[in-house]
């Protein structure tokens, strides 16, 4: 799940990072691979309680032809208590304003005390999430909107809003490993792959990285045979991922090209996914990243597909 597109990647646990740093990598106690992967997953997909980013993807094919996609992405973590309760109504707004900033903002800069506890207290936040993706470019998809209710371990709920027809279309999500809007990122890279879908093995610990090798539990459901992640030891940022096929050949590579600190959270701001067979690649840039905006649950409903939530998209 971690190898995905760390959209809104941050270090929730600056505290954990600080702890590791104090002890020094050499002296750090061995961390179970499950904890490493769980942390990396959280850092890649669950920083803050919600977030927003302006996203630009530049897709380059083997002939060097460029296409550009621009979108605003809003993300909201569903509190564990509410997840799967079966009531998806908008606007009851129980999550939110009180709790989120306190937990999010309070924790990040406060180093030290969490050093012994790299697994964060809010692990519940690695569950269901909602994504709202509003496209601006290319021109023919302007205002087209994609709504995802991500359910780890199950098929996500997805809707596509086509403004020219005022049509809210429900879309199938069986094919998670297909291209996201023609880019080299897959849907699963965007919203995250379930941690339990793969087995993970810590193969090496270097000065900067945990190197984790992962293999699919259900090999037939995916196109890769294995992938290797380089996870930054201090921040748990996934810095590089290489996917290998059955012959052991690396055919797909994800690389982080830039990280910035946003509201105390190191955040991936530039990354590239390369298809080494076709020689195409997609570079994604995140800007204007913000966390803990207090996004209401209601934004992630049909009402706001038909009527854009300007206040939150800015």
């Amino acid at each position: 799940m971690n190898r995905m597109f760390p959209w809104l990647v941050t270090v929730t646990l600056a505290a954990a990072a600080a702890g590791a740093q104090n002890e020094g990598p050499a002296a750090a106690p061995a961390l179970a691979v499950e904890a490493i992967v769980a942390n990396a997953n959280r850092v890649s997909y669950y920083q803050g309680r919600d977030g927003r980013a302006q996203v630009r993807m530049v897709v380059v094919d083997a002939q060097g032809r460029e296409r550009t996609r621009e979108m605003t992405i809003l993300r909201l973590d569903v509190p564990a208590a509410a997840a799967g309760s079966g009531d998806a109504k908008g606007g009851d707004g129980k999550r939110g304003d009180g709790e989120a900033p306190a937990a999010g903002a309070g924790k990040a800069p406060a180093a030290g005390d969490a050093a012994a506890n790299p697994a964060p207290a809010d692990d519940a936040h690695c569950g269901e999430q909602k994504f709202y993706v509003r496209f601006r470019q290319p021109a023919d998809v302007d205002k087209t909107t994609f709504l995802v209710w991500k359910k780890p371990g199950q098929d996500d709920d997805r809707w596509l809003y086509l403004p020219a027809l005022d049509l809210v279309k429900r879309v199938s999500s069986a094919d998670k490993r297909s291209s996201f809007v023609g880019s080299h990122f897959f849907y699963e890279d965007v919203s995250g792959r379930h941690v339990a879908a793969d087995t993970h093995e810590l193969v090496e610990t270097t000065k900067n990285y945990y190197v984790v090798e992962s293999k699919p539990v259900d090999a037939k459901s995916v196109e890769f045979a294995a992938y290797k992640m380089w996870i930054h030891r201090e921040s748990f940022t996934v810095v590089k991922v290489e996917f290998r096929d059955a012959a052991g050949e690396v055919y797909r590579r994800y690389e982080v090209l830039g990280v910035e600190t946003v509201q105390g959270r190191p955040t991936v701001t530039k990354a590239r996914m390369s298809d080494l067979r076709s020689n195409g690649s997609t570079t994604v840039t995140y800007s204007e990243v913000a966390y803990d905006l207090g996004l209401p649950d209601e934004v992630f409903t049909e009402r706001y597909l038909r009527r854009e939530p300007r206040q939150w998209l800015r």
Binding site: Y209, H232, S235, T237, K240, V259
Partner: peptide
């Protein structure tokens, strides 16, 4: 091995 991206240095 990837170099640390700018922004992920300790501190």
């Amino acid at each position: 091995e990837p170099a640390l991206p700018t922004g992920l240095e300790s501190g």
